[in-house]
Simulated assay, not measured.
Amino acid sequence: MTPRPRATYSMIAKEAGVSEATVSRVLNGDSRVDGDRAKSVLDVVERLGYRKHRAATALASGRTNLIAVVIDNDLSIFSDPFWGTVTSGISRVLMENELQTLLLVTSVSSIDGPVAHYLQAGEVDGAIFFQLHKDALVRKLAKTGLPIVIAGSPHAATDFVFVDTDNFGGGHAATKHLVNRGCKKVAIITGDIETVAGHQRLDGYHQAYRELGRVPAKALTAYGDYSYESGKREMARLLADQSDIDGVFACNDLMALGAIAAIEERGLTVPNDVAVIGFDDSVVAQTSRPGLTSVRQDIVALGEAAAELMIAQLRNEPVEPRILPTQLVIRASA
């Protein structure tokens, strides 16, 4: 079956018995067009299945109605339910404002790579960055006037618009809870410490120790990458080196579940032998057995706030950075 050719202004104008200029005015919402003529155009548009061509619309209006969501990582991140949840929050708010999400998952370490060229080529109206390791590309894009939002605190004091979770407070609360429940030797499995969030959660852990007048041994810090596998691997290594560890703060829920698996494989139980706390309070924390105590960040609200800050910039409204609170949700694991 031969596909029907794409409808054009010329085709619509011919069938509706009007000029191409009238078609353009109707499709661009000009209320001054005669009602009968407008109805005739819209009836033909419906019958032919006409859809606006995004590139042509962008040339005419200067807007693409696309917002890039750039995750500075690789595709392995999608094993973590965090990303599906946060992007749903972004997409919902953008769609309510007739904007669409363009997801890019790639390293943005180069200021002259394909992503940099794409974002500078006028293909998107703005960019929201997640898990940013370096600020150089964002600085370059900001100089071009492209609206930018960073989900996560910037690496240094800047004028970038950002939204973040209270990562320091969450790390502090998790560690303090383990100490208060009687744990004598609390370890941490960090996330990606090349990101500000990873460092802040580690800093919160250190602060809880300092308040006790103690300094945690370096051997109590294990470096994960937010994956289940790294949580399991690092927990096994911690227990092999220091069998008397009785508490662990894993910097996300997937690593916490990996840690629990390693603890149980060693013949120990959670929380009787080792108490475990995660971070995110994602669906895996809410459905795991034992139930996982976790630092709750409102992941949907994080995405929504990032989208709201982007929309405010597109409307030339004033914007301020936002820090969203965390809450420790206590379940069976600690």
Results as ranks from 00 to 15, higher is better:
residue 1 M to D: 14
residue 1 M to Y: 10
residue 3 P to Q: 14
residue 9 Y to V: 00
residue 11 M to P: 00
residue 12 I to E: 10
residue 13 A to I: 04
residue 14 K to M: 06
residue 16 A to D: 10
residue 17 G to D: 13
residue 18 V to Q: 03
residue 19 S to D: 13
residue 21 A to I: 12
residue 23 V to N: 04
residue 28 N to Q: 08
residue 29 G to E: 13
residue 34 D to T: 03
residue 37 R to V: 02
residue 38 A to C: 05
residue 38 A to R: 13
residue 42 L to V: 02
residue 46 E to N: 11
residue 49 G to D: 11
residue 53 H to F: 06
residue 61 S to H: 03
residue 62 G to P: 06
residue 64 T to L: 07
residue 64 T to Y: 12
residue 64 T to D: 14
residue 66 L to D: 14
residue 66 L to M: 14
residue 66 L to I: 10
residue 68 A to L: 04
residue 70 V to D: 13
residue 73 N to A: 15
residue 74 D to Q: 05
residue 74 D to M: 02
residue 78 F to P: 00
residue 80 D to Q: 01
residue 87 T to L: 14
residue 87 T to P: 01
residue 87 T to M: 11
residue 88 S to W: 09
residue 89 G to R: 01
residue 93 V to S: 00
residue 93 V to R: 04
residue 96 E to T: 00
residue 96 E to N: 07
residue 103 L to R: 01
residue 104 L to T: 09
residue 109 S to M: 10
residue 110 S to I: 01
residue 112 D to N: 10
residue 113 G to N: 11
residue 116 A to P: 01
residue 117 H to D: 15
residue 117 H to R: 11
residue 122 G to Q: 07
residue 128 I to F: 06
residue 134 K to N: 15
residue 134 K to I: 09
residue 144 T to E: 15
residue 148 I to T: 05
residue 148 I to K: 03
residue 151 A to Q: 08
residue 151 A to C: 14
residue 153 S to L: 09
residue 153 S to G: 04
residue 159 D to A: 07
residue 160 F to K: 00
residue 165 T to H: 02
residue 167 N to K: 01
residue 171 G to I: 10
residue 171 G to K: 08
residue 172 H to D: 12
residue 177 H to W: 11
residue 179 V to Y: 09
residue 179 V to R: 03
residue 179 V to G: 04
residue 180 N to E: 15
residue 180 N to P: 00
residue 182 G to V: 00
residue 184 K to E: 15
residue 184 K to A: 12
residue 186 V to H: 01
residue 188 I to M: 10
residue 188 I to W: 11
residue 188 I to K: 05
residue 190 T to W: 12
residue 192 D to N: 11
residue 202 L to R: 12
residue 205 Y to F: 15
residue 207 Q to H: 12
residue 209 Y to W: 15
residue 210 R to A: 15
residue 213 G to W: 08
residue 218 K to V: 07
residue 225 D to I: 02
residue 225 D to L: 01
residue 225 D to W: 05
residue 225 D to V: 01
residue 227 S to D: 12
residue 227 S to Q: 12
residue 228 Y to K: 02
residue 232 K to W: 14
residue 236 A to P: 03
residue 240 A to R: 06
residue 242 Q to A: 11
residue 244 D to K: 00
residue 247 G to A: 06
residue 248 V to A: 13
residue 248 V to Q: 10
residue 253 D to H: 07
residue 256 A to C: 09
residue 262 A to C: 13
residue 262 A to H: 13
residue 264 E to T: 08
residue 265 E to M: 02
residue 272 N to Y: 03
residue 276 V to P: 07
residue 277 I to S: 10
residue 278 G to W: 13
residue 278 G to F: 14
residue 283 V to I: 15
residue 284 V to G: 05
residue 287 T to P: 03
residue 290 P to H: 06
residue 297 Q to W: 04
residue 298 D to L: 02
residue 299 I to G: 06
residue 302 L to S: 04
residue 305 A to G: 01
residue 306 A to L: 03
residue 310 M to K: 03
residue 311 I to Q: 05
residue 311 I to N: 03
residue 312 A to C: 02
residue 318 P to L: 07
residue 319 V to M: 04
residue 320 E to K: 08
residue 320 E to F: 04
residue 321 P to L: 06
residue 322 R to M: 09
residue 322 R to L: 12
residue 323 I to W: 00
residue 326 T to M: 05
residue 326 T to N: 07
residue 326 T to L: 06
residue 327 Q to R: 12
residue 328 L to F: 11
residue 329 V to W: 08
residue 329 V to C: 08
residue 331 R to F: 14
residue 332 A to I: 00
